[in-house]
Amino acid sequence: MKLIGLGEDIKQAAWDARINLSPEEETALERQLQNILRQAEFLKENEIYNAEPTHYPYTQQNTLREDNPSPSLPLDKVLENAPEANEIYFLVPRIVE
């Protein structure tokens, strides 16, 4: 059972999700994870190997949209919710760390 290094894996995952977890949260999550991974042992059973994965709840096929333009949002609505913007652009802090 792959539980060694779980703490490190949690740190990396939080980093990848752009989240800082407090030490308490890391501990709590580790405990939950051990619980889940233990309960998820059934995923190692052989019958699963031969099953196809289900990514969509049912097999309705997609519809294709005709290539006809529809109205975009007005600029004031586009920028209305932006935490930082000037009259035309969204603004982000420096890209380079």
């Binding site: 995952a13 939080a14 999700a17 949260e25 999550l29 994870l33 889940i36």
Partner: peptide, 10 residues
């Protein structure tokens, strides 16, 4: 939610 998303990332 933070723990949930971290779990998803992991």
């Amino acid at each position: 939610i933070k723990q949930f998303l971290t779990f998803g990332a992991l």
